[in-house]
Design a protein around this nucleic acid. Sequence first.
DNA 1: GCCCAAGGTTACAAAAAGGGAACTGCCATG
DNA 2: CATGGCAGTTCCCTTTTTGTAACCTTGGGC
Lengths: 130, 130
Amino acid sequence: MDARVSSQAIRLDILETLDFNNCPVRDVMGQIGGKWAPLLLISLSERPYRFSDLRRSVPDISQRMLTQTLRDLERDGFVARTVYPTKPPSVEYALTPLGRSLLVPLSGVINWAESNHEAVRAARIRYDAA
Amino acid sequence: MDARVSSQAIRLDILETLDFNNCPVRDVMGQIGGKWAPLLLISLSERPYRFSDLRRSVPDISQRMLTQTLRDLERDGFVARTVYPTKPPSVEYALTPLGRSLLVPLSGVINWAESNHEAVRAARIRYDAA
DNA sequence: GCCCAAGGTTACAAAAAGGGAACTGCCATG
DNA sequence: CATGGCAGTTCCCTTTTTGTAACCTTGGGC
């Protein structure tokens, strides 16, 4: 387990300025903490995708949730939606600069999740046994 | 806006191995994406806290949600709960090494949220106007 | 003429998350 | 003896989120 880290490595500038009524943490995490948003952001970090490509890349998402999550990400400025007037109009979704900048810290959490998934599952089993 | 970043800075090891039925991203984000968990983790990153101290430090949380969120964080191995048999028993909550290691990448997202909160709010206003 | 793909929307149902208030047991203080 | 702090638990209700399924339009291929 590489879970040991010197606490000096952590800087939380937020602690001094946190406003609970207008909380940036909630505002951002509320979106990226949804069920599908992180997965879509991961896919889009690779390259732009069309609507149907995203459906295929995230197999168990419904059309409804895909539309809704993309609209939310677009609203927050993380994703840009571009309609190309081809024969059947095609719609491309791509990360904006803001979305790409979010992915820098977010990918840290994602990689942590990958690395420490087993430790979390083990902790749950220990807790549930007691 | 410092939202521009070279995409080379992003490494998503997860892309090749992602299993949608046993998804580490969901497993971890599901917890830390809750309404109260990030705020509690931030408080606990400072120092261990007792139950009532946490209530005071996160003023609008109810007793019910505080207990429940702490139990979830304990179950996942992020927080340790220690009961001291003092006159009125006092209960201390502290980050575990696993919890502290999570805070390293998580604080990156938190600081991003602080820095880019205004950009997100501005994007929302633009979107809602159209 | 029929069916399919793209890119959705709408209505409805189910499930999960969160909130409010009351109640508990223990001990201490005034 | 009443009040208040600590650390919760329980019940019930509302809100939010997610899922299921059906429907829509335009255009192309067979």
